[in-house]
Each structure stands twice: as structure tokens, then as C-alpha cells.
Design a protein around this nucleic acid. Structure first.
Lengths: 250, 250
DNA sequence: ACAAAAGTGTTCCTCTTACACCCATGA
DNA sequence: TCATGGGTGTAAGAGGAACACTTTTGT
């Protein structure tokens, strides 16, 4: 028999997605409006990460996908579970009232599973999101968000930098065909560093999984750059061979 | 108003902990017995990862800690959230009946947050766990576990190897003072490789955060080895300096 | 012709790898 | 004295880092 001192009622699980995009110069995060009436009768509008309670029939991945697609349409998204925020007091008072009203439930507690997401951000997507009442806000310009979403965002930014060094997620930000310079600028932006272009090219060109796409930029006011593409299969092959341990082995 | 087609009832959250230990030769995982009566009236006993539903008042970390300490006592544990298993069908039929009976609840679905844990395994802990009816099973000898716990275990093993390359978790397995050989054997076990001892020593001795503990092994039937200790502060300092990116930067 | 970004090589240095023998201790 | 693991050095190669100028295109 389970511990009789513990009770297990009125909990629910939500997902909240931190969706990142790269506009060529800066990282942006996808935010949604939360418009509501305060008890005082005043209308307010603050921003939040896109999220939702999960329903009985769906798993977390589906819920996160559903929530994200409401603001970006049927595009492909890189989506990954990050961390569960489970402090019993993370949502309380007015914030809890809002959730209970919004979903028509009577919860005393909401845990949220934070998702980490990446999309290829372009002008078309920017316009789509605008029509759906979403915002793509530059990371440097994010102000106070609803609930504990600033905390989630900070966690996601850390996670982004870590993951960037371990997995080839850079290509989730860029169009299928990209220039080496675009890739370099992405690295420079994510880590807030400057990279020597000669060394960067040398490194990139030495990677078997980044291959010339046999085309060039067009309509640019300078020498057009060669386009490259990421080959996921080649990457997997490469990665199996090179088991990158810092230590020596036979 | 939330999507009226979705319902949000009868969900609960559990934690399941994959606790690893190193006995000097092999990795072992901590398992608990699940003894119960089948509907046919037959008594069965299978093994599971230690776990529990979370109660209203606790966060996930506390729940995971509570569950683990039931089998290892008040020792320090390295505990980290890993992944949520959220398939709506992950627990059903007899398995779901068992949970509802055991906890005295009426759930239609249980999500579980899988935790990853490491402890310093020694003879004393081995005996303690045995008294609490737990088992330390070698990774190679784990058979079919209850629920979806084999899947969780596999995820945890992958996670262990990944984390091992990124964070200094090796020292969570070893006593405060350890020999370089112990550390080497741990690496060899985790990655199932052989390491050249000269190169390994050279590498380890070059790390500023592994320092001589000013003592030697005792009562061994060979030349006693120097003991070393991990200095977490030195590690943090070192890690801030060396921002290890594969690419070049200024 | 000029502005803007693409593209290119070399040197130095650090870290990784491969490899074999003597040493100190307890039994 | 023997069995057991502890402890040591060197040379070759690969990859990272620092550094400045020419080329190609559109306007």
C-alpha cells in the first residue's frame, strides 16, 4: 500500500515551448499574448511562452507540437523535452485562477514540462505568426513574461548553448541550402563571440557531412557565395566512427 | 477559453529513479521488488525501478529523493531529471490496476518522470539495501522489469554515457579519495573500452581539479597507490576559462 | 570605380596517440 | 622470491589558433 500520508489530487500537467528562430542577425523567441481581465476589472496583456494543459489522449510531444503549430502553422519543428518545473507553488493566486478559468478546471497545482524547439525563421513565417497574434521577440528584448516563463526561457537559452556543442542543431535554424557565412554568423550569435572566417571555413569544409549544394547565392551585391547542405546520414556515419572521448583508449 | 475538445482528468505523475553504482568492476542498478497477487490468485515477484506517485505537496526532486532513500538510507545522491515518459498507454490493464490498488486511487493514466541517480556503492550500502529488500543488479544481468522500466533503464544508460563526457560525474561513483586506477576502471567500464594507463595518468595528472590527497592505499598486496581527490571549485574555475568549442574564436 | 562580402595558406603550438619496462609491497 | 598492480618517458602526428590580402559581383 502506498504511503497513506500522501495525497494525489488535483494535479495537472502542461507543456510550455521555448521556440527559437534565427533571423540572420539575432536569435528570436516565439511568444504568445495572454489577454485577460484582472479582478480589479482592468484588462491586461502580457506575453508568455506558447503552452497548454495536456489532454487525456495525447502524449507530451504531441501537445508541444500542437501548441507550437498554432503559431507557426504546419512547418517542421525540432522539438525536444527539456525539464519539468514542478515546484508546488510555481503557479498560485491570480495565475492559478487564470488557468482554472481558461481551461474550466479546478486545479490546485500545475506542473509544466518545458520543451525546447527550433524552427527555420523566414519572412513568410514571421508574417504567419503575426496573423496568429504571436510575436518573434529578439532575445535581448524580452521583458517580464507571465507565470515563471522567464525562468523557463533562461533554462532554454543555457540548454541551447549546450546542445549546440553536442548535436548538429545549427541546421535546424538555417534553410536547407545555406552559405558558410550564414552558419558562422549563427555560431557567433549563439555564443556571442567572433570567429575567424578562415579557420571556420577550413573546419566546415573538412566535415564530410557538410556538402556543396552545387549552387550559388543569387541577387546579392557582392561575390555570390557557394551554398552547402547538411547531410544527416553522413553525420550519423561519421559520429559512429569518431567516438569522441577526451581520454585515450585502444 | 481552452480547447473544449480536450479533457484533463485522472492523470497523475510518478517518478522512477535509475540509480547507478560502481562496485569496482561493474556498474550496478538499484532495483526494488514488486510482489503482488495476480487476478488468477498467483503471487508474483518481479523487479522494478524504485518509484512512487508524487504527492500534492512535494516537487519532483523531493519525491525522487524520498524514493531513493528508502533503499539507500540518508546517503548523498546525485539526482537529475532525465525524461518524462508520457505515452497515454504506457501503463494499462493489470499494471494500471496494480497502481490504483497500491495507491488507493482511480487513475486512467500515469506519466512518469524518469530520474537519473548516482551513488557511492560500497559494502556497507550493499548490506543496507539488502536489509531494505532492494537489489543491486549488474547491468549485464538485468532481466525483464515491471512496467516500461526496461525502456527507462536503457534511456538512463545512454544518458549516463553522454553525461560522463560532459560533466565530472565520475566522482559521484568513487569514494572521496580514490586512486587513478579506480578512475580508469570506471571509465573502462562505463564505455566498455580499454585505456592505456600511461596516457590516462598523464591526462588526469594534467587536470588541475584532480589533486593528490596526500595519502596512500593501505593493506594491498602490491605497491600502494597514491590517493587523489576531486576539487569541485577548481573544476568550476577551470571550466569557466576553457570554453570548449570545436571552432575557433577570438 | 567603388562598396561589400567571398575566398584563400602558412606557421606555431598544443594535445592525442602508440608503445615497454622497472618498482614497491604483502604473502 | 614471486605475484600483483603502481608508476614512468618519448616521438610522431593531428588538429587548433593566429594572422592579411586578393577576387568577384552589383550598383
Amino acid at each position: 500500500m502506498g504511503n497513506p500520508n500522501l495525497t494525489y489530487d488535483n494535479q495537472a500537467i502542461s507543456v510550455d515551448c521555448t521556440v527559437f528562430g534565427f533571423d540572420g542577425n539575432a536569435l528570436r523567441v516565439l511568444l504568445a499574448h495572454r489577454r485577460r481581465m484582472l479582478p480589479t476589472g482592468v484588462e491586461t496583456d502580457d506575453l508568455k511562452l506558447p503552452g497548454s494543459l495536456i489532454s487525456d489522449a495525447e502524449d507530451l510531444q504531441s501537445a508541444a507540437c500542437r501548441v507550437t503549430r498554432e503559431l507557426i502553422g504546419a512547418r517542421s519543428v525540432y522539438l525536444k523535452q527539456m525539464e519539468v518545473f514542478s515546484n508546488p507553488q510555481r503557479v498560485q493566486g491570480q495565475e492559478l485562477t487564470w488557468i482554472n478559468t481558461y481551461y474550466g478546471v479546478a486545479l490546485s497545482r500545475v506542473l509544466t514540462v518545458a520543451f525546447f524547439a527550433l524552427v527555420k525563421l523566414d519572412d513568410k513565417l514571421m508574417r504567419y505568426t503575426r496573423r496568429k497574434d504571436g510575436e518573434w521577440v529578439e532575445l535581448g528584448s524580452v521583458r517580464r513574461l507571465a507565470l515563471d516563463h522567464n525562468k523557463i526561457l533562461i533554462t532554454a537559452i543555457d540548454y541551447l548553448m549546450k546542445l549546440f556543442q553536442q548535436e548538429p542543431i545549427a541546421f535546424e535554424f538555417l534553410p536547407r541550402k545555406f552559405t558558410i557565412k550564414q552558419l558562422q554568423r549563427l555560431y557567433e550569435t549563439v555564443f556571442d563571440i567572433e570567429i575567424d572566417n578562415r579557420n571556420f571555413r577550413k573546419k566546415i569544409l573538412s566535415l564530410e557531412y557538410i556538402q556543396p549544394a552545387g549552387a550559388c547565392e543569387e541577387k546579392v551585391a557582392h561575390k555570390p557565395a557557394q551554398l552547402y547542405a547538411f547531410d544527416r546520414n553522413a553525420y550519423k556515419r561519421e559520429n559512429k566512427k569518431i567516438f569522441k572521448l577526451n581520454f585515450v583508449y585502444k
